[in-house]
Design a binder for these strands. Sequence first.
DNA 1: TTTATAATTAGAATAATTCTATTTACATTT
DNA 2: AAATGTAAATAGAATTATTCTAATTATAAA
Lengths: 144, 144
Amino acid sequence: MVYSLTDKDKEGLNRALKGKGLRPTKQRTSVYEVILRKKDHPTADEVLVRVRRELPTISLATVYNCLETLVECGLVRQVNFDRAPTRFCPNLTPHAHFKCSRTGEIFDLPMDPNTVEHLKTILPKGFLAENFDLSFVGSTNLSQ
Amino acid sequence: MVYSLTDKDKEGLNRALKGKGLRPTKQRTSVYEVILRKKDHPTADEVLVRVRRELPTISLATVYNCLETLVECGLVRQVNFDRAPTRFCPNLTPHAHFKCSRTGEIFDLPMDPNTVEHLKTILPKGFLAENFDLSFVGSTNLSQ
DNA sequence: TTTATAATTAGAATAATTCTATTTACATTT
DNA sequence: AAATGTAAATAGAATTATTCTAATTATAAA
């Protein structure tokens, strides 16, 4: 094994899975590992490539299954942009996403609790949000 | 013609298209008409069905072309939810979307300018947003 | 250890979107 | 008004993204 989860992350995964009555199989562990290791926003295809370095025979269907499980457990989030495949994100802190239309790069933008609270004020009575996805598209000028 | 655009909407369409050097063909007009008429959030497939009542031979590819053009002209917006086909929205006022996970229904949630300004404060220096997409998923209890 | 269940697998199936090559419509120039 | 050039529409194929299916394997519990 080239990579491996920290004890803390491993434990977090085990606890979250157990909470749903699910098992920490090597596929799930490996997918989680890959998602945590490089904190970018891979598509399912990209996850497949990375996981295959550890588990050369894993299929795309299993990667989808594992990612779906991780999302259900609240360990991974899905990120959507217009007409683009789903991307997956291990950052569980409140944040938005920004895609640079020039480079395609995706950035996490942290949101303070105050902003999150402010956001929720737009929910009318009777609307209970389980989660939200806030994505910006624009251009970056990071040269300064 | 059963339906038709108001003069105001027609003019808005013409002006927006002309601004991009494009022509108001009957397909574009009809797609726009359908999108404006029923203010829900149809997928491209649903738009096809509706437009075919007017233009029975129009193809899905043309519907995609027209929708893309309308998006580029700023007359229609795309709405994304996890693992779901793109939906299209004619509401150009600042708002978010809420999808009820029970019924699948999608609601527009208006955002006041103050909230929009607040949102933009999370953009770091050098990040210029052209647009954003804010989507909530949760449950509604509209029985009260 | 048997048994029951959950998970994985490959590959097929489906759904969503884009591409291609041809035809048609439009606007402009003659 | 006819010819010309370009934009748009078209059908259908191709591609991409995702889900489903049925068979096999792994795991946990009895």
